[in-house]
């Protein structure tokens, strides 16, 4: 019992040290996930306690960078949840076509697989050329991968199947070039994407968006941080604009619930109500 309490104190101090030294704020992340990741890094490095880890990360930037990769969410795939992309194509794209210029924010984009999925969708719907996509993540390492648009070939079979299930109109192979064990995404997909560093826990609004996607990021946050981020999205999405969350996430338990209506409930596609409604 005592050991557990001591470990929790150490963990709190570790997160505070990370925040004070490096500015990344994990203090309002879901604890279980953070704790598991910290313990796994502890085992891997052969450190004897979280306190020892704290000492190391304060003095060794390269160690912190490894830990940061552990702590940030960097699992994603192209057209993850094909039924979501199908719903986006069927119910959201027709509404977006009414606009002469579109701004889309992909928050917590990780290594970019879903950003390229969106770019493909926009191309096929004839919207790409009038769209600016902002793809943001707090981790510059994964953001660089996203910018490069180079992905391991091993997952391509699954991505192709996902693309087809999501209502893809072309052949998926039109969108990349294969090089040995990796694929390079077509350059024309990148032109209107701005990859940028943004931390949902600490940064603010940077523009008014027609569509915001933030999928499977909120599940890593506690209620307090979820509310902060949903507030940020509320302030960033134009009235009548769309917000898309992950399939197990919901706006319905937050204080912004009444400000959004369901577009496709099961796919967690919401629309901000017009304030004059």
């Amino acid at each position: 019992m005592d050991d557990f309490e001591t470990q929790n104190i150490e963990l709190q101090l570790l997160l505070k040290a990370i925040y004070l030294k490096y500015g990344y704020d994990f203090r309002n992340y879901s604890k279980a996930s953070i704790k598991r990741r910290v313990f796994h890094r502890l085992d891997k490095e052969g450190l004897e306690s979280i306190s020892a880890m704290q000492h190391k990360l304060l003095y060794d930037v390269s160690f912190f960078e490894r830990l940061l990769l552990d702590l940030s969410i960097n699992v994603t795939e192209m057209f993850r949840d094909p039924s979501f992309y199908l719903a986006l194509r069927k119910f959201v794209m027709p509404k977006l076509k009414k606009h002469s210029f579109l701004k889309i924010w992909h928050a917590g984009c990780s290594s970019g697989e879903e950003v390229y999925s969106m770019a493909i969708l926009l191309k096929e719907e004839g919207l790409y050329d009038r769209t600016q996509i902002y793809a943001t993540d707090m981790n510059e390492v994964v953001l660089k991968q996203a910018k490069d648009g180079i992905f391991n070939i091993s997952k391509l079979k699954q991505y192709t199947a996902n693309y087809q299930k999501s209502g893809g109109l072309e052949s998926f192979s039109d969108y990349y070039m294969a090089h040995y064990d990796h694929v390079v995404m077509d350059k024309s997909l990148k032109g209107n994407i701005l990859f940028s560093d943004h931390n949902l826990a600490t940064d603010g609004v940077f523009g008014e968006m027609n569509l915001i996607l933030c999928r499977n990021v909120l599940i890593y946050f506690n209620r307090e941080l979820q509310n902060r981020v949903l507030g940020l999205f509320y302030d960033s999405v134009s009235p009548g604009g769309f917000l898309c969350l992950g399939s197990k996430e919901s706006i319905r338990f937050s204080k912004y619930s009444d400000a959004f209506e369901d577009v496709v409930r099961i796919e967690r596609i919401y629309r901000r109500l017009n304030t004059d409604n």
Binding site: S30, A32, S33, I73, V75, N216, I219, Y220, G246
Partner: peptide, 9 residues
């Protein structure tokens, strides 16, 4: 004693 979900590897 509440649940969290994750999409970790």
């Amino acid at each position: 004693r509440s649940f969290s979900l994750s999409i970790d590897k």
